[in-house]
Simulated assay, not measured.
Amino acid sequence: MSKVAETVLEIDLGALRHNYEYLKSTLHPGTKFVAVVKAFAYGHDATKIAPFLEKLGVDYFAVAYTSEGIELREAGIQTPVLVLHPQSVHFDSLIDHSLEPCIYSDHIMSRFLEITNARGLRDYPIHLKFNTGLNRLGFGEDEAEKVFTVISGKHSVKVASIFSHLAAPEDPDEDRFTRSQINAFRRMTEMFENIAGYRPLLHQSNTSGILCHPEAQFDMVRSGIGLYGYGNDETKNRHLRPIGTLKTVISQIHRLEKGDSLGYNRAFIAEKPTLTATLPLGHADGIGRPYGNGKGYVRINGKYAPIIGNVCMDMIMVDITDIDCREGDEVVVYGKNPSAEEFAATAGTISYELITAISRRVKRVYIGG
């Protein structure tokens, strides 16, 4: 990896390829793959990540919102795009960009049917979402027969897939609950085939489901965090490579004497002579205030430097008293060591929150493609 002279998120496309190929290798033959690139591709820029994955042969992309799907189309993506959480106000734009909506409630279903009928569409692809226990989005099992009957009688749409979401597939203590979700999903999808007379694609597994419950692969799986190098389990993580390394540099070094304070609200008071380094990133870049006051750390020349004082909007300060370093030296915030999971854990959060929070003002640099 190259040395940097500013704050950058270095993204290894070779690692992305590795993760995709590893996840694919765990699937049954013929199982399709949905690459989840919502939230700016988990902070890595979907307009760069999706074209690379498209060349690798993913079958679908998934985003949260219509605007994210439009970004993919404007970036030249031709692969089908599933919009997981569309709002009815955006349905015309969604259709104009050939995006495929998740239909998860009576309101969303009736509004989308109104629009497709008014536009004279036929067999427009939709995806039915069912709630099997996550209790977040989706029709309930008690609504399945009514939904299937309504949809099967409409010519303006056709069900491309039926899907659900597992709540805790990585947790062996929740295996019984996971099995109940899988069984509920099977019951509903069998009902659809009996009513509609055809079988759409079925999918329920996220990354943890892929790695922990091969019996729940059905026709297709969805992976988000796994593509970016994390598997929600230490044993699974060994097979994955984090694709993002957040790097910065030392802007300035200060010497504090005993009793000197540092940063806003004088949150750090030196108990002995202390050397500190100021780094050019802060909570406006995605490193939130919870990481301050000794909770977070970075690596400088192979050694750990704890974050001291309050995190500022554009700067953090670290203790370098026992580290041989100079202004301009490179600093690793997270990557392979520490990983995003390890760094996030110091503030009591998870890798998802950390990597998706990295501001767009942080320069993205792509290697290994």
Score class of each variant (00 low, 15 high):
residue 105 S to D: 05
residue 82 L to K: 11
residue 98 S to T: 04
residue 114 E to R: 11
residue 75 A to E: 11
residue 117 N to D: 14
residue 121 L to Y: 07
residue 74 E to D: 12
residue 99 L to G: 12
residue 45 D to A: 06
residue 63 V to G: 05
residue 64 A to E: 03
residue 109 M to K: 00
residue 92 D to Y: 02
residue 87 Q to Y: 15
residue 85 H to N: 12
residue 89 V to I: 11
residue 56 L to I: 05
residue 59 D to A: 08
residue 93 S to E: 14
residue 69 G to M: 05
residue 115 I to W: 01
residue 71 E to R: 07
residue 80 P to Q: 14
residue 114 E to P: 00
residue 63 V to C: 04
residue 85 H to K: 13
residue 102 C to P: 02
residue 89 V to M: 11
residue 98 S to H: 12
residue 57 G to A: 08
residue 42 Y to P: 02
residue 120 G to T: 10
residue 116 T to D: 07
residue 73 R to L: 12
residue 121 L to E: 11
residue 92 D to P: 00
residue 67 S to I: 10
residue 66 T to Y: 02
residue 57 G to C: 08
residue 57 G to V: 10
residue 90 H to R: 10
residue 121 L to S: 09
residue 43 G to N: 00
residue 55 K to D: 12
residue 60 Y to P: 03
residue 78 Q to W: 03
residue 117 N to I: 10
residue 121 L to V: 07
residue 85 H to F: 06
residue 69 G to P: 03
residue 48 K to Q: 15
residue 41 A to S: 13
residue 81 V to C: 10
residue 119 R to L: 13
residue 113 L to A: 01
residue 51 P to A: 08
residue 94 L to S: 07
residue 112 F to Q: 04
residue 126 I to L: 10
residue 79 T to K: 15
residue 47 T to Y: 03
residue 56 L to F: 02
residue 104 Y to G: 07
residue 104 Y to F: 13
residue 119 R to N: 04
residue 70 I to L: 06
residue 102 C to F: 05
residue 43 G to V: 05
residue 41 A to R: 04
residue 110 S to C: 01
